[in-house]
Design a protein around this nucleic acid. Structure first.
Lengths: 192, 192
DNA sequence: CGATTCTTTGAAAACAGTCAATCTGTGTGG
DNA sequence: CCACACAGATTGACTGTTTTCAAAGAATCG
């Protein structure tokens, strides 16, 4: 639903009616079924992606076939590979839907035009980048300073909604631990 | 030396002579001796910080007294706590000099004015933020997918200059492993 | 040189990963 | 509605990696 995106814009900035329409006119809606890919390793990221419903993830697969989840995105989050989008280089990530989902796509070119022509859009995008960076820094900090159990507890605090929504094995992957370890960690926590 | 900063600006954007002077007029130079703090946990970050010479690090200290290094910054890098700078909240990080250093400070207010009034400056800052985010993403990826040895080898590839410049124990901290483990990892690598 | 800081080494313990088997819950087709 | 298949979670036994603590060895600097 395009309305989810419109409402999101309105909460994030002061758009005039015309500006809103300019942004909305630039997007394409795409539906994804569970397990459907939005991007495959080796592809070039061509669009900025906003999730209006459902849940996606970005991840890599290593030589042993293990998946490593870099990010989740549910409604009102963005997901993508900025590096590929910027440079035009093939992405090393896969992105697919964990649930049936709907996403809002904005092509690279149109996105850049929006940034130039619609100041509130540009401000919003910069704010998101800022925030994404902060989130990434904090995540790095948990990796260099916390044990498996601490990382899981931090995750629960930060993303309580995600914990109940995505399979545990994927949370484990996101935390950089195995599904078995996460299972044991949870057992320990419940005991107390 | 203010010239290091000027040259940096010129390589990063097309500044007119006047714009250059506007930026330079907004900065304050500060010298730091080895081990001197630029920011202590609990302080609010008041300035944007560019390193013109030397080397700084940002880190936390946990309850057991262990240091966890989040970032290094050598000449021509920026360092700071964007979150504290933005929100005005006390920082959870410490920043100090690993070598005698010189930094360029720009107060939050002046920095914001520069972003508004000097387009090439604004573009430069956005580009840096983009790049910082990409670096952070890549670092997260190494944490969720690599062993101690692989992380060290990745570090050597990405920052060969740093490896010879900062103590090994600090590199270990940056990688989220102990100094002892890094020492053993290095021993293994040399054997081959 | 002596003091300090950093690195290396060894042995034991804690932690996390692997592999295989079992258990649980969900949804589908007969 | 039941039986079955399937995906995900848990468990056990074992292996491997990393940490911890303590001590000894380099390296650096005044």
């Amino acid at each position: 639903m395009i309305n989810v995106f419109k409402e999101y814009l309105q909460t994030k900035g002061n758009y005039t009616a015309i500006q809103l329409e300019t942004v909305v006119a630039a997007v394409v809606i795409k539906k994804l079924r569970k397990r459907q890919y939005l991007l495959q390793e080796g592809d070039v990221m061509k669009n900025h992606v906003f999730v209006s419903s459902g849940c996606l993830r970005s991840y890599t697969v290593d030589d042993k076939g293990m998946e490593h989840i870099l990010n989740f995105a549910i409604e009102n989050w963005w997901i993508g590979d900025r590096e590929s989008l910027q440079t035009g280089q093939p992405s090393i990530y896969n992105i697919d839907a964990i649930e049936d989902s709907e996403v809002v796509l904005i092509s690279r070119d149109k996105f850049d035009v929006l940034c130039q022509d619609v100041p509130p859009f540009n401000n919003m995008i910069n704010a998101i980048l800022q925030k994404s960076f902060n989130v990434a820094q904090n995540r790095i900090h948990t990796f260099i300073s916390q044990s498996a159990e601490e990382k899981y507890l931090s995750f629960l605090e930060k993303f309580p909604h995600l914990a109940t929504r995505v399979p545990q094995s994927m949370i484990a992957s996101y935390l950089g631990i195995t599904a078995e370890t996460l299972s044991r960690v949870r057992k320990q926590i419940v005991k107390r």
